[in-house]
Design a binder for these strands. Structure first.
Lengths: 219, 219
DNA sequence: AAATAAAATTTGGTAAGGCTAATTTTATTT
DNA sequence: AAATAAAATTAGCCTTACCAAATTTTATTT
């Protein structure tokens, strides 16, 4: 299999590839990983030799079929471990990412599948990202945010769009978790602030930015 | 914290230190890890600088108080993960060691304690080795084997002394697990073979070596 | 005690995966 | 099209963690 570093590059390229249909350049990878472009060039050669990516100055970096498979597996492992850490070990949203970042590299043919089964085949991770299935397929990402809800409407939190610890810790302070019910009382026209009621409690005002960061289900 | 390699050396030294009151030489470490003695000398310097070990040609390698603490934590993590893999993910005895070998290096201040709690604070790992507690203390190792049982006596399997996959797979074939009840029907004087009944089923004969490899509780 | 064997150590080298600084290539302005 | 800016690449170097070979130290025989 691959080294830790190779896996991190693969995952990064996969993420950039998903984010936008944009061309993936060495500089973009370097920025994303916080590495020097020179190091990225080295690794591009390595991953190309391993037939995990293809690189063309015109098209940028692209994942090969094998590269996609391998990257998907890493993402699968990462998201499953996040569910485990949150649901079974009682970690909070803002703590799980970094640990999952390490756990995702554990190599064992059946580990992801066993963990998946143990967790009851979850579809989404705690950040609302779909968990790739063993066959590589995955569900659609959530897209409706609290900012999209109509005044007077009510919804349930299903995931977060922003995963910075600032946001996650703010959520915790407000006692908002997955499944928490939120009612939109009023939208302030001036700055699109939202007046909400969390679990039927007293009204609170949050910013537009906040609303756009909370993925919800109001179906 | 420490690098993967440093942790592996620490664990190795800890194991040698537990095994016997013997002097721990660079050669012994090299053999144990399958490394070149030259590499061991390098690492001894590194761990000495970090104040995790003390090295004296007369006394050999010794763990400092900090070294003991750190090594104990690694062992704690290893054994807890083994319990998790066996009990929660349904792995077999002979599969868990290598995976735990990777999991033990996951760094997070509260992970071991949370896992410990999640698993119900187990005292022993599936190989019968005591799991160090959060404070570093641990229970005594099991010592009675099936070969020590009196004819006609009955006992329960609590652990294995031999952890080779040959033995673990043999156990599986015989359908012997932790908690399995075994009755000693007869001891063959010629070669100390044991005639046993597993969970009250038909008699089977196993070797003396087999009997000495199964740790049991007949209290 | 001298000879020999074994263990420990030093020296120099390798591969992975980073880096900085310099250079070349490609894009964008003017 | 020339000048300039940006991106990509090369060159050379660093650290970690290993190795083999040579050397020194320590132990064991004779």
């Amino acid at each position: 299999m691959h080294t830790l570093s190779e896996e991190n590059y693969l995952k990064c390229i996969y993420r950039l590839w998903q984010d936008k249909g944009q061309k993936i350049t060495p500089t973009a990878i370097a920025e994303s990983l916080g590495n020097n472009p020179a190091s990225v060039v080295d690794m591009i050669r390595k991953l190309t030799d391993k037939q995990l990516i293809a690189y063309d100055k015109k098209k940028g970096v692209e994942l090969t079929v094998q590269g996609q498979k391998d990257a998907t597996l890493i993402v699968r492992r990462h998201r499953l471990w996040e569910v485990f850490l949150l649901e079974k070990l009682g970690y909070h949203w803002d703590e799980i990412h970094d640990i999952a970042e390490e756990l995702e590299h554990i190599k064992d043919a059946s580990l992801a599948d066993r963990l998946d089964k143990f967790l009851g085949f979850p579809e989404y991770d705690p950040h609302g990202d779909p968990i790739p299935k063993a066959n590589g397929k995955m569900a659609k990402r959530f897209s409706t945010t609290l900012a999209d809800v109509k005044t007077g409407g009510s919804c349930r939190v299903v995931a977060v769009k922003d995963t910075t610890s600032q946001f996650l810790q703010y959520l915790q302070k407000l006692d908002i978790n997955i499944g928490t019910k939120i009612q939109l009382i009023e939208k302030i026209p001036f700055d699109s602030s939202l007046v909400i009621s969390i679990n039927g409690n007293e009204h609170k005002t949050v910013s537009q930015k906040f609303g756009e960061s909370l993925l919800i289900d109001n179906s």
